[in-house]
């Protein structure tokens, strides 16, 4: 660590003997601006240029609203399912010892590594009415492929590692002595889990939920194969953007994208607030 001498006034950077600050920061900023910032501000500029009446007409179009509802709704359900099972997976990986644990642990990252299109066609084949799983669900009257339920299944696949990998490291850090102390004081296992373990994990679970949710809202590749893509029923917002682009309806594509970005950032804000609340409540 560099020890900064007592300095007067504002200074952009603290002095250091290490060279290359200008070069690396300059290059990084230029690259970031060219690849990310200019294209993204182009999107915002284009949607602002639409004017309020046109923007409002696109935003309140029944098909747009339905697509947004489907994207956010299915992503929410999938993230909620992943919170339950992802936390359970993390618990088993952290606390239990069994042969092949290392392999199971590595497998959890499969959705990160497997291209989404591959996941999409694989899940569709599994859950199609004549597929391995679809065949079993058919007699029960459950249709998965080509329905919103299919979207949820794809998003559970995509989101699982986000929850596991956020919760797992926090679980590993839990000091067992606290549990032991509670046990010697007569707490039941259930009390220990709900009163001691859960509060410590709540912030990580919230983060995992929001990461899985955010990823699910924007997900495209794995969903479009299994969704059936019926307008108003199983059409996700990213697909509607693609459809509008293919119709050369740039204003609609831009407006829907801007709404998605806005809602995602709003959600991030809410999650951050929820997190600081849970830190105050449990921390």
């Amino acid at each position: 660590m560099t020890t900064a001498p007592a300095q007067a006034g504002w200074r952009f950077r603290q002095p250091s003997v290490i060279p290359g600050f200008g070069l690396t920061l300059g290059f990084s900023l230029a690259y970031l601006t060219l690849i990310i910032l200019i294209p993204l501000s182009g999107l915002i500029w284009r949607s602002a240029a639409l004017g309020w009446p046109e923007f409002w007409a696109i935003a309140t179009d029944r098909r747009t609203i339905n697509a947004l509802e489907i994207s956010f709704g299915t992503a929410f359900i999938a993230a909620a399912v992943n919170v339950v099972f992802g936390t359970l997976v993390a618990w088993v990986l952290v606390r239990y010892r069994f042969p092949g644990r290392r392999i199971v642990d590595a497998m959890v990252d499969l959705p990160f590594a497997l291209p989404t299109a591959v996941a999409g066609i694989a899940l569709t084949t599994l859950y199609a009415p004549n597929g391995w799983i679809g065949k079993l669900l058919m007699p029960l009257g459950i249709k998965v492929a080509y329905t919103p339920l299919g979207i949820v299944i794809a998003l559970i696949f995509i989101g699982l590692p986000f929850v596991v990998r956020t919760v797992q490291p926090i679980m590993e850090e839990i000091d067992k002595e606290v549990e032991e102390a509670a046990a010697t004081l007569g707490a039941s296992r259930f009390q220990i889990i709900t009163r001691i373990l859960f509060p410590g994990l709540a912030p990580a679970i919230t983060t995992g939920f929001s990461l899985a949710f955010a990823r699910g809202v924007g997900e495209y590749g794995s969903v479009i194969f299994i969704a059936g893509n019926l307008p108003y029923k199983s059409e996700i917002a990213p697909l509607l953007i693609v459809i509008r682009l293919e119709e050369y309806n740039y204003p609609a594509a831009t407006a829907i994208a801007a709404i998605m970005l806005f809602l995602s950032f709003l959600m991030l804000l809410i999650v951050n607030l929820a997190q600081s609340w849970s830190r105050k409540r449990y921390g």
Partner: peptide, 12 residues
């Protein structure tokens, strides 16, 4: 950012 939006910004 949704991958679709990542592509869209370059189309725009």
């Amino acid at each position: 950012v949704s991958p679709v939006i990542s592509g869209l910004v370059y189309v725009l």
